[in-house]
Amino acid sequence: MDRRAAISPPLTLTRAAIHPYKFNNARRNKFPKATYRVTNCSEYDESLRRQGDVTIWVSDDVVKNWASPRRKTRGGQSLYSDLAIEISLTLRVVFRLPLRQTQSFMRSIARLMGIDLVVPDFSTLSRRGKRMKIVQNRRDANKPITLIVDSTGLKVRGDKGWHGEKHGIRKARKTWRKLHIRLDPETGDIAATELTTEHVGNETALPDLLADMDVDVNRFLADGAYDGQCVADCLLDKFGSRIEIIIPPPKNAVRGENARRNQHIDTIAEHGRMNW
């Protein structure tokens, strides 16, 4: 439960309250850490207890597709569908249960909900789980996607353990690496990564990060570190002129030759960064 929801009386949240660190651009880095004064301690304590509440329900579609469809070929007929096995094994992984306890856990859920559901036994879960293929949700190959690109730093630790005991403790190396990530928000998958040294900027690493892409991209999202003409030229050459580039310019940005970036600067100056 959100902590703001436990504060009484209810407050009408504005954009300044929802994004206190981004509303005022001129003093964005000088905002103190947000603090909340709890006035209804009993309700706040109850909200903390509810974080450990386990609420599981079975939809009608799951009950309908629980049994395996009858097949017309020779051989034994399966009693449970792949969906039933997948749900049971998923709960086993989430709650870290052995197979027998997983069977009992699924029985208790069906009993509490009053559903006439036959639960697979532990041997069936073990046997079917080894050869079951989980069908993942795939995006439409012909549909343009939205691409998100970002980077983060990785610290490189010094020599420890066996090397330090054998050769002595040496001065720790003060260096780090930069990991560039390409994300598909529709599937939530990391499409590609690129590891570079700390001297390689985001604009320099972007062409290699997008080199193996064979899908159409209609929107590109990135932070202000990718604001530059080189990034715009790379995206236009790779995906064409129909791509929508959404990169926030810095607060001291000035108009240039890029018409799209100039439009962003004008919109921010007229309506503010949050409305943009």
Rank of each mutant, 00 (worst) to 15 (best):
A5D: 15
L11Q: 15
R15G: 11
A16K: 15
A17F: 07
A17Q: 12
P20C: 05
Y21W: 07
K22V: 04
F23P: 00
N29W: 12
N29R: 15
F31C: 01
P32K: 12
Y36G: 03
T39F: 02
T39Y: 02
C41L: 07
R50D: 11
Q51A: 11
Q51N: 05
Q51K: 14
D53A: 14
V54G: 00
I56E: 05
V58Y: 09
S59P: 02
V62N: 00
N65G: 06
T73A: 10
T73G: 06
Q77N: 02
S78E: 12
I85R: 04
I85G: 00
L91F: 15
F95L: 08
T102H: 02
F105A: 00
F105N: 01
M106K: 01
A110Q: 04
L112E: 09
M113S: 08
I115R: 11
V119F: 02
P120I: 08
S123K: 13
T124Y: 08
R131N: 12
D140Y: 06
K143M: 12
S151F: 05
G153E: 15
V156S: 12
H163E: 13
H163C: 10
H180N: 13
E186C: 06
G188Q: 04
D189K: 06
I190E: 08
A191F: 00
A191L: 13
T196C: 14
E198H: 06
T204V: 13
A205W: 13
L206G: 02
D208A: 13
R219M: 11
R219N: 06
L221F: 03
A232C: 12
L236N: 11
L236W: 00
D237C: 10
I245W: 04
I246F: 09
I247Q: 09
A259K: 11
R261M: 11
Q263I: 15
H264E: 01
